[in-house]
Design a protein around this nucleic acid. Sequence first.
DNA 1: CTGAAAGCGCTTACAG
DNA 2: CTGAAAGCGCTTACAG
Lengths: 364, 364
Amino acid sequence: MPTCLDSAIISPFPTLRHQDKPLTEAPRRARRSSGRVTLADVARLAGVSPITVSRALRGERAVDSQLVEKVQQAADTLGYVPDPAARALASQKSTQVLVLVPLLSNALFVDLLEAVHRTLFPEGYQPLIGVTHYDSAEEELLLRTYLPHRPAGLLVTGFDRSETARQLIAQSGVPCVHLMETSNAPGVACVGFSQTDAGAAITRHLLERGRRRIAFCGAQLDPRVLQRAEGYRRGLREAGLYDPRLEMLSPERSSIALGARLFEEMLQRMPDIDAIFFCNDDIAQGGLLAAHRLGVAVPARIAMAGFNDLAGSDQMVPSLTTVRTPRSEVGREGAGMLLGMMRGAKPAVGSIELGYELVVREST
Amino acid sequence: MPTCLDSAIISPFPTLRHQDKPLTEAPRRARRSSGRVTLADVARLAGVSPITVSRALRGERAVDSQLVEKVQQAADTLGYVPDPAARALASQKSTQVLVLVPLLSNALFVDLLEAVHRTLFPEGYQPLIGVTHYDSAEEELLLRTYLPHRPAGLLVTGFDRSETARQLIAQSGVPCVHLMETSNAPGVACVGFSQTDAGAAITRHLLERGRRRIAFCGAQLDPRVLQRAEGYRRGLREAGLYDPRLEMLSPERSSIALGARLFEEMLQRMPDIDAIFFCNDDIAQGGLLAAHRLGVAVPARIAMAGFNDLAGSDQMVPSLTTVRTPRSEVGREGAGMLLGMMRGAKPAVGSIELGYELVVREST
DNA sequence: CTGAAAGCGCTTACAG
DNA sequence: CTGAAAGCGCTTACAG
């Protein structure tokens, strides 16, 4: 039947060209065929029961290899594609994995999502992206909307969420891995690195370069930015050089334009600074551009460092010193850990600490 | 029952605290309650049939307002949340909308997705993001994977896809709107703007500035980049200044780093150029930075223009002249059109042409 | 305006 | 290793 094969190639749910006669001729009222090839159709062609088809196709339990072959062939012939909704309803579990990130406009999370997709998709799970905009009410709404879909797993960013969101996750029973930060709390699965240590490391680098009046510019003020600020303080206190007036924290969303503004304000407020640690590369790039515009020499007059090593930082003039964060690794390892949990491996829960890397360039 | 109310606030699918006795005591074997509050539970509490609950909650068909009230109250009391899988199976249609974009690393598509989400989500539809990486095989795989979920609608980028993908979409019967480009083909729904016209407009702007040797740098070479190139050619031909040697097309993915390389190569190959039109702001930013590094005066020696008006272009030194493209409007209007189609409005199909805006800054 | 019956297309839980 | 029955939780299609 070449036409059937043809349609099997083209359509994910081909219609039966030669519609079988209904097996019973009894008066049936509510008939509403979707035109879809079903498990029953495959079973009929293969001469086995639907359950056997189900098992053969999923590779679950032992099925006679000859039957598996026959079923597979029948499924191919008809172009059978399982119905995800029926599967989800019967098994109380879908193959979608809910992934909650704060923003898509930060390249960091795009890299993270790419890695998650590359890990999950080939294993039969589909990431479902939800954007929280750093807003706990939005996060709650997303959870309320998507948890009823019974996702197979859940990937969330960090630990900072409302108590309600926390309970929604816990009560759902859906396996959950936290990304970008780590924790030692029992029963918590997470993959990340120490934002605080990384912040301290880059601060020490500036100190080693001989800088003494090192400022910190932070935007957005999400937990990870605050952890970097904490690392900055630790680094300066160790050197006995901490001065709270050198900190500038803005709740505004991080951006190149904001970085330019923060730089100008900082310079005006504390003219004696000789270095700035920006909490993210985008505001650091803005700072670099503002310095260029104002004729402030970098690093001669003021050294500048960023965080995350985003696109363009290596191209800036001067190129930007920063911290390369392992977001792709976090995505890959986090998704891998979740994979283990979704498949029922309890010991997979734990905490994975990944490193970071200082990238020294011309700006310091 | 305060505990029930409590749980209704917290969980999207609370368990029944006071489990009702099974109505029949007959020997039932395959019992497998999910612990979920169902339509039947609500119906029992409200004293009506499940169908009435279904209709009252969906607002479908006329239901006595008193009953609606009673049903609503029962649903609230029990914390009822409909099961999306059951709904999708029974109605052969989910509330997810598949959105296919080439890349998340281009801020353009992030803006598009934001607008789509803001339009669709409040109306009860959830965007399901798929990334094709400008690869038709990936696009096909995404369609094969997600179409069986019977999404309520489909949003795709442009018209450039394999014949198989085209057929997959057509045969699925899922309403589909094409974004970012327009077409006059009958029965095709699309929202976009003329990339060619926009490309011609910025070329004319450079001509008006007195430039005569205007180069074009294109990366990625997706259909929209090629359309901009076509506009560039049209503009130069009108002025009798077209020279194919001024075109530099690279299949590499667009990026700041690539822009720097393209600029250097272009300058070496054609030292007499006095302007460059970059197909996208990221490579234009790279060009600007490379010029700075090499000491090439912009715009004095070479004028530079980009495309899309991405983040940072207004902060560059000199700030970048570009074309502001209406991606948020495309997302909003495209999703709005799809909304009409999903609700069964046939006349909604059509072509919406949105404008673009020349943003003249210091670089030209 | 309301409802009893059937059905959507799978998998679970038992049996054998 | 295979299968008949029941069930997952909704909506459709008819009736009245």
